[in-house]
């Protein structure tokens, strides 16, 4: 078969078969449509699952980081503790609130150790190991 002006030819019965081929393709498309909608559903479901996983992972990670920050803060506070700072002593029954300096505490320990008649070595052991 040859077109009026075109020098090209097509295989025998090409146009007769073309209608059937196209109709077959269309039917395949039609049958494929529900499958396609399922696969779209599956795509959305997996995307949602991945999103939930990522959010949960991020939330857990964030929580862990907060804990570490708290712990680090505590350690930092301990490290930054200066003995020269005043120490607040929780008042006992009837006592008034008072602050003692670290020097005052040290002086009390020295007075106490003197009254106990401890020598330097015993005093050192007491301070460092008890």
């Amino acid at each position: 078969m040859k077109n009026q002006k075109t020098p090209f030819k097509v295989p025998d019965n090409y146009f007769e078969q073309l209608t059937e081929t196209v109709m077959e393709n269309v039917k395949t498309q039609e049958l494929g449509s529900p499958k396609k909608s399922f696969s779209m559903w599956a795509k959305y479901a997996s995307a949602a699952a991945v999103l939930i996983f990522v959010i949960s992972f991020a939330a857990i990670k964030l929580q862990q980081e907060e804990t570490i920050v708290v712990e680090l803060d505590t350690i930092t506070e301990i490290n930054n503790f200066s003995p020269s700072e005043d120490v607040y002593i929780e008042p006992q029954n009837g006592e008034s609130k008072e602050f003692l300096s670290q020097d005052a505490i040290d002086n009390d320990i020295v007075d106490w150790s003197t009254s106990m008649d401890l020598d330097d070595e015993e005093f050192y052991l007491l301070i460092n190991y008890y």
Binding site: N3, T6, F8, V10, P11, F15, L18, T19, V22, M23, V26
Partner: peptide
């Protein structure tokens, strides 16, 4: 749709063939 294919198949094919040469 079959009517549509029968009506337009040759025009569409030849328009494409003149541009690509290869059947």
């Amino acid at each position: 749709f079959r009517m549509l294919v029968d009506t337009y198949k040759e025009q569409i094919y030849w328009q494409a063939r003149r541009n690509f040469v290869v059947h």
